[in-house]
């Protein structure tokens, strides 16, 4: 069923089966997100896209758009919740932006800028996490992983390789590599794989590309995360033929 719903006071259309996230993006409305990516099966785990639907919280990336529903998205309360979630992602990992080659291209950083995150209400964990540098062309740095599951979905659904999985539980959760040795070098992953390019943070990097684009001229140095997200959706719609 297609129809219309209201987001932040604005009436926007949706097509049958669309999620709130998809319909909003088509209408040029940005809903902050990290584990969602257009074209990928929703994961609904980062909770950054939580919106109020008729007064109840729901993940915009998994909740279907409903005729006549009233959705709150860009409100101070929801953005403060999003800031808290983003702070948690920072303090639970080892995100040292000045020492990370993904800086400026990192979605976690860009979302934090969008939410105006300058301080933390939580102490830093500095967890002990491993780096897998075994592959000649690809680096896996778990210190920067936010467990968005995008590499898992990309490798399974796009590349057809099943290289990654989220292993362990709770605070011990880690991206693990599907090889008897657990090493990236012992998989058939390739630099051209979607799984390598989909990582929103600096957890999966192509080696020897660090400063090909200088800091200051990178994706989110030039555009906001909202602009980039909306442009990506428009480009995808054009690829689909309108």
């Amino acid at each position: 069923m297609s129809g219309h719903f209201i987001i932040d006071g604005r009436t926007i259309p949706f097509r049958a089966g669309q999620t709130i996230m998809e319909a909003a993006a088509d209408a040029g409305v940005y809903i902050p997100h990290l584990c969602h990516r257009p074209g990928y099966t929703p994961h609904g785990s980062c909770k950054l896209c939580t919106v109020d639907v008729d007064g109840r919280p729901a993940s915009a990336c998994t909740a279907k758009a409903q005729e006549g529903s009233i959705v709150e998205n860009d409100t101070p309360a929801l953005n403060d919740d999003r800031r808290a979630l983003t702070e948690m992602l920072f303090v639970e990992g080892n995100h040292i932006c000045p020492a990370c080659e993904k800086t400026g291209d990192c979605q976690l950083q860009a979302v934090a800028y969008h939410l105006k995150l300058v301080s933390y209400r939580f102490d830093h964990f500095y967890p002990a996490r491993g780096v897998d540098a075994s592959h000649p062309d690809i680096l896996l740095d778990r210190n920067r992983c936010i467990l968005c599951d995008l590499c898992v979905r990309a490798s399974r659904d796009v590349d057809g390789k099943n290289v990654f999985e989220i292993g362990h539980r709770g605070i011990r959760s880690r991206v693990i590599v599907n090889a008897a040795s657990g090493r990236l070098a012992d998989t058939d992953i390739d630099v051209s794989d979607a799984a390598v390019r989909v990582c929103p943070v600096g957890a999966i990097l192509i080696k020897r590309r660090a400063f090909a684009v200088p800091i200051g001229k990178r994706t989110y140095d030039l555009k906001s995360v909202a602009e980039v997200a909306i442009e990506e959706v428009r480009a995808q719609r054009e690829d689909e033929g309108g």
Binding site: N94, I96, P98, A99, H124, Y126, P127, A128
Partner: peptide
């Protein structure tokens, strides 16, 4: 955040 010196934390 601790920054670059915090790279030694582990």
């Amino acid at each position: 955040t601790g920054g670059v010196p915090a790279l030694r934390n582990n």
